[in-house]
Each structure stands twice: as C-alpha cells, then as structure tokens.
Design a protein around this nucleic acid. Structure first.
Lengths: 200, 200
DNA sequence: CCTTCAGGTTAACGACCGCTAACCTCCCTG
DNA sequence: CAGGGAGGTTAGCGGTCGTTAACCTGAAGG
C-alpha cells in the first residue's frame, strides 16, 4: 500500500497517452511510433508492455466499461443500504457519470467511438458491460418514473448519456471555466431531461 | 426541373456510401477500394469524381454544416415573420435538428467525429459554420430564458446537441421502433433539459 | 463515320505502418 | 562478481493504402 497514488507505472503512462492520442486522431490515425514518443520511448519499445496496438485499445475500453459499471453498482448498493429515495439514487448515478466524463474525457470519447475496432471477443465483453450499466440506469429511472415504458426509459438513458458525454465539446482546450459549475449544469439538465421524458 | 428528385448522380451515390462507411469504421479505417465497391465501381475509378479521399470527407462535412445552418436560418426568419413566441422558435430549431439527426445518421456521426481529419482550410470553414449554427441556438435559448448567461447557454446548447445526436446509439440496426415517437421523446427531453438549465 | 470524351479498367509505385529480430545495456540477486 | 532478465535500441520485413499512369469502351455530335 502506498502513501500516495504510487508513481504511475510505464503501462499506465502509455495507456494514458494512447487514450489521448486515440481520442484526438482516431485509432487508425495514430501510429505506434507516436504513442512511444509521447512517453519518451520509441516505437517498438511499446511491445515490452503490450501485445500490440489493439491490446492497448482493448485494455482502455474494457477498463472504462468495468470502471463505470462497478462504480454504478457500488453507488446503488450504498443507496439501497441507506434506504434513500429514488430521486437520490438517480442523482447518485448522474453524479458518478459526470465525474467520469469530466475527469476522463479521452476515455469517454473512445468509449462510443472506437468500439468497432476491437477483436470480436473484446468487443462482446465491452458491449456486455455497457449493457449492464445501461440496465442499472434503466432500473433507477423506472423506479423514479414508473409511467415510463422500458423502451422509452432505455432511449432516455442513451440520450442522457449523449448529453453528459458532450463534455469534450464543451471546453475549447484551455478554458474550462469551473468544474463545479459545469457539473451542476449538466446534472440539472440530465434530471430535467428525464423528468420531461416521463411527462406523458 | 424534375418530376421527382432526379435519379441520384454518381457523385451523390459515392458521397452517401462514403458517409456510411466513414461513420461505421472511421475515415482512416475505410479504403478507397471499399468505397468504390459500395457503388459498383472499383478503387481508382473514384478519382473521376473526386480529387481524393480527403475531398469526399470535406464535401460531406461542409455540406452538412451548411445544410444545418441554412435550415436554421430559414426557420428563424420564418418564425420572425410570423411573430411567434420564443418557445415556438426554439421548438422549430429542435424539430429541424431532430429531423436531420434521424434522417442522416451517418452524417451526424461524422460531423463531430472526423472534423480533425480535414485540411486546414476546410476545417476552418466547417468550424465557422458550426459556430454560426450554435450562435443561432444560443440566441433563441436566451430569448426564451433571459436568466441564462451566455456561457451557460452555450454549454447547454452543446449538451442538447449531444442529447439529440445520440440517435445513432438508440436503434440497434434494424429495430427503429417508430420515428415519430422517438422524435417526440427527444423533443420533450431537449426542452426539459433547457428548462432545467435555466432554473437558477 | 469518325471523333471525342466521360467514365471506367488494371498495373504499379511510393509511402507508411504494425510488428519482429537482433542486439545492447543496466540493475538486481545469489 | 557472474549472470540474467527487464526494458530499451535500430534495422528491416511484409502488407496495405492513396494515388497516378496508361489503356479501354460506348455513346453522343457534327
């Protein structure tokens, strides 16, 4: 156990830079030499840490999907234990997703953009994790708005994801105004969108 | 002038298929041979119609940006002429954007995904058109909700674009339930999101 | 009927890219 | 102090991709 977050390992450095580059120029638009250069080694040195370029993307996408899902599960079980109201449960999910979207912008971008570049097995896994995550949201939404049909709730959830994942477009590089304000605005809009979806 | 929409020209066929392929697999992930094959000719035959692969993407992105902007301008001037209420103006913008997002899914996907693959001049042009489009929305939103600051309104507009542009994720290929229902749901959610953004 | 040209074809070139091979250091450990 | 593995390096191979060159063809027009 570390006193701090432990100096980032080489693998983590590589993953972080690869995520940034993939998000900026697309998976096929980035060469392994560029990824290497971004961490100070060059080209084939990456193969000491990853089996290939595909493996980096796979690890990024599986990682983000798992992280989103386990975070949501934790929040739901905590909420259930505390016996809070349905509104607070949904609020907690929204808050978690916003934190993620604001803190890991490149990953959020990759998440719904480069999924098809994965090998079949990895793509299936990621899709399954994503589906579970969506279903957690659908359940929380329908507990708060029982009038919503399941397909409508699912559509609404996907649309709110689109809203929350728009953060990469929000900030021209350099001018992120204040994180807290942006988070609160997004939160209000997400709740408003769900409420509007539920009105007849 | 034609009795119907005139049989699509070769150029239009090519653009349509290229848009679909680019949206599916990314600009760098599609080869010119595949685009050619999709319209029944093969590979280099495309160069009778376009200067290169880049030119196809440029024409697609400029076309969509112009189309969105002119559509919005037309709707705004019509609304002004009719002297309708601010709510109806925003509704008209929302409706236009939804129509576009539902009818030209691949283009909506490309629009915010492959912009950086353009030559400098084209990218500047597209960005300028997009900015104008956003500003039309910001104006309409602030006329309806004068309490919103301009940065807040702009963020809200970008977020609602994210919501509306989520349509490609909504329909697993083949099962689009009913267009009208989806459009109405999206419309309600967009309005709800704006209203929530405006509440303190 | 001959010409021309739009719209194709195939062959091939040059560049680039992912990846492997072969080799070179340190540093840690017995 | 040997030695061995972790983590680099450069050279280069094989394949792919965008693009060009050279050639073909069928239909329209004078």
């Amino acid at each position: 156990m570390a006193t701090r977050t432990d100096a980032p390992t080489r693998r983590e450095q590589i993953l972080k830079e690869a995520a940034r580059l993939f998000a900026e120029r697309g998976f096929h638009g980035v060469g392994v030499d560029e990824i290497g250069a971004a961490v100070g080694i060059s080209g084939p040195g990456l193969y000491r840490h990853f089996a290939g370029k595909d493996a980096m993307l796979a690890e990024l996408l599986v990682g983000i999907s798992e992280s989103l899902l386990t975070g949501a599960k934790r929040r739901l079980s905590e909420a259930e234990a505390a016996g809070v109201a349905p509104e607070a449960v949904l609020d907690s999910l929204i808050e978690g997703h916003i934190d993620f979207a604001l803190d890991d912008r490149p990953l959020i971008t990759l998440h719904d953009r480069e999924l098809d570049r994965l090998r079949d097995a990895d793509r299936k896994l990621v899709r399954q994790l994503q589906r579970q995550y969506v279903e957690l949201w659908v359940g929380a939404v329908r507990r708060l708005y029982p009038g919503l049909t399941e397909p409508a709730a699912r559509s609404a959830v996907h649309s709110v994801f689109g809203l929350l994942n728009s953060t990469p477009h929000l900030t021209r590089p350099g001018s992120l105004p204040d994180r807290a304000g942006t988070a609160e605005l997004l939160h209000r809009m997400a709740r408003g969108a769900f409420a509007a979806a539920a009105e007849s």
